[in-house]
């Protein structure tokens, strides 16, 4: 990556400081802002959904989900994000949009969303109870499992949430401008369980 002369700034810089909040001695919720994520929206061109899935399979060995699921791992994942639409999310320094463009050509329209979304990782034993205070979807393990994702509302704010593992841990993506408001809802919701905010990473 080219060395640029501008510093990036998180929309949460002023509102999410590492530390412990709420009920002392408890860690029901652990919050971490994710950094260094490359996020690119893929929208299949009309009638190219099948070809796109084949190209993704061939290029990365991943099955492009056709239901609200996530395929992949921390390095690269495809997250269902609506009809014939996905978010490709990658960690690291490469140019994700370029690499997608190279391999998918005109099968999909690509749009960089790395800055359009803020992503939080949430974990801890009381994560579900905290989320239930703002999300109306069912996150019970019988209804929502690792790999599942949903586009929904959290505290009246549009979000996309996906579950990573059974801890349980989740990631939740929100439009950047609403990130502060999301934290403004999340921290009070979790304070009865005790919250640890980790440094961004």
């Amino acid at each position: 990556m080219v060395e640029i002369g501008l510093l990036s700034r998180s929309p949460l810089a002023a509102v999410l400081q590492p530390g412990h909040y709420g009920q002392p001695g408890q860690d029901g919720l652990v919050v971490q802002e994710r950094t260094g994520l490359h996020i690119v929206n893929l929208a299949a061109r009309r009638g190219q959904g099948g070809a796109l899935a084949v190209a993704v399979q061939r290029s990365w060995g991943l099955e492009l989900p056709t239901t609200p699921r996530r395929a992949g791992d921390g390095r690269l994942a495809f997250l269902w994000s609506g009809g014939a639409q996905w978010l490709a999310i990658a960690e690291g320094t490469g140019d994700l949009e370029l690499s997608l463009k190279d391999r998918l050509g005109s099968l999909a329209s690509l749009t960089d969303q790395s800055d359009g979304r803020s992503v939080l990782r949430l974990s801890g034993s009381r994560t579900r109870e905290t989320l239930a205070k703002g999300l109306a979807i069912d996150l019970h393990p019988r209804a929502f499992t690792p790999g599942d994702t949903a586009l929904t509302l959290a505290g009246h704010i549009g979000v996309q949430i996906w579950q990573l593992d059974d801890t349980p841990s989740y990631e939740i993506a929100v439009a950047r401008g609403y990130a502060g408001s999301l934290i403004g809802w999340l921290l009070p919701a979790g304070e009865e369980f005790g919250i640890t905010v980790l440094p961004p990473g």
Binding site: N41, T111, Q113, D115, R176
Partner: peptide, 9 residues
């Protein structure tokens, strides 16, 4: 045609 908001990007 494919559309997505980039207001926040």
């Amino acid at each position: 045609v494919q559309m997505i908001s980039v207001t926040e990007q």
